[in-house]
């Protein structure tokens, strides 16, 4: 028996049974790696430790590397990791960010409705989304795609998303496509590392640090709602949104998935997602599905609504409606 292993295993604050179970391998490796690194660090101090950054940075990165899965963290641990990421952003890029780990609000299930009649294809929502969510400017990543469709076309798959001319065009309508935040999400089922899951308020989120970049979720998603970082995202500092959320618009890395989160950093603070706020025609409606007085419930009750690919049983929380 390795005495170290036993020592680490007997953490009194560990109450969650899921936590104590994998104690053996993970915690043992962690302990062993710590010991190895201590030796390594002792050597490094002799020959210029500046190569790997300051001692503080090294310690922060170390702790970040061995943190738990976000869902298994307590609120204090979440606060801790958020503070660490803030300090790391300051040390590594000199950016002052405010990150939060706001929990879902009780009695809230977010729903979204898109008015196909009203959308005119001005793409203000896309621009606002890129800005708000710190999307990669190098690969021109966008969460939202607006499809220009002729009257009579029934699915965006036959529409044109690459239009660039004056809009709106006669006899055409515009249909926005983004993550549908399915209640029965195929991407969640496909993920082999449980790096993506649905939060109690209905938002499907990704723990970027837990993602291994296998892209199974892209293959599983019937709505083309997921995006992959082929390179480290490039966002100019002056354009960066500094108010961030751990599960939302914080900076991702190369080889990580990301997706629309209904702007979790905004919606959990009672604000509208950036796309809804930016829409110049009021084609986007957002609100709490569990609130009978909300606007989204009015739309669902009084307008002609449909969901895209409803027959797949994904149960999306994203409705389209016509006037």
């Amino acid at each position: 028996m390795d005495p170290r292993k036993n020592k680490i295993c007997k953490k009194p604050e560990e109450k969650d049974c899921r936590q104590t179970k994998p104690c053996g391998r993970r915690e043992f490796l962690k302990g062993a790696a710590k010991a190895a690194a201590l030796g390594g660090a002792a050597m490094l101090t002799g020959c210029g430790g500046g190569m790997l950054g300051s001692k503080e940075e090294l310690s922060l990165r170390w702790k970040e590397y061995f943190k738990k899965h976000y869902r298994l963290m307590t609120q204090e641990e979440k606060e801790g990791t958020v503070r660490r990421l803030e300090s790391l952003a300051k040390i590594q890029n000199g950016v002052n960010i405010q990150m939060s780990s706001t929990a879902p609000i009780d009695g809230v299930l977010f729903g979204y409705a898109f008015n196909v009649t009203r959308c005119e294809g001005y793409m203000e929502c896309v621009a606002a989304c890129v800005k708000e969510n710190n999307l990669d400017r190098k690969s021109n990543m966008q969460y939202i795609r607006i499809f220009e469709m002729e009257h009579g076309q029934l699915t965006p798959e036959v529409g044109n998303a690459k239009f660039y001319h004056q809009v709106p065009v006669e006899d055409h309508f515009y249909m926005g496509v983004q993550c549908n935040q399915c209640q029965n999400a195929p991407c969640v089922k496909a993920c082999p590392t449980k790096a993506t899951w649905q939060e109690p308020d209905g938002i499907v989120v990704v723990d970027y640090d837990w993602c291994i970049g296998c892209r199974y979720c892209i293959a599983a998603c019937p709505y083309y709602g997921r995006r992959f970082n082929w390179n480290d995202p490039v966002v100019p500092e002056e354009e960066m949104t500094k108010k961030q959320h751990y599960l939302g618009n914080r900076m991702r890395g190369r080889g990580q998935m990301e997706k629309c989160t209904f702007c979790v950093q905004r919606s959990r603070a009672g604000r509208l997602p950036a796309c809804v706020e930016a829409c110049p025609t009021g084609a986007r409606v957002f609100g709490n599905l569990l609130d009978p007085d909300s606007e989204i419930r009015f739309v669902l009750k009084n307008k002609k609504v449909f969901r895209w690919k409803e027959d797949l049983g994904t149960d999306p929380k994203f409705w389209y409606f016509v006037d």
Binding site: E120, G121, Y122, M123, E124, V126, A127, V130, N140, Q142, R145, I146, A161, K162, F163, Y164, H165, Q166, V167, P168, P280, T281
Partner: peptide, 13 residues
């Protein structure tokens, strides 16, 4: 609403 240019365009897939 007036006819105008979109503020951004979608890059080809």
């Amino acid at each position: 609403f007036k006819k105008r240019w979109p503020v951004i365009y979608s890059p080809p897939l």
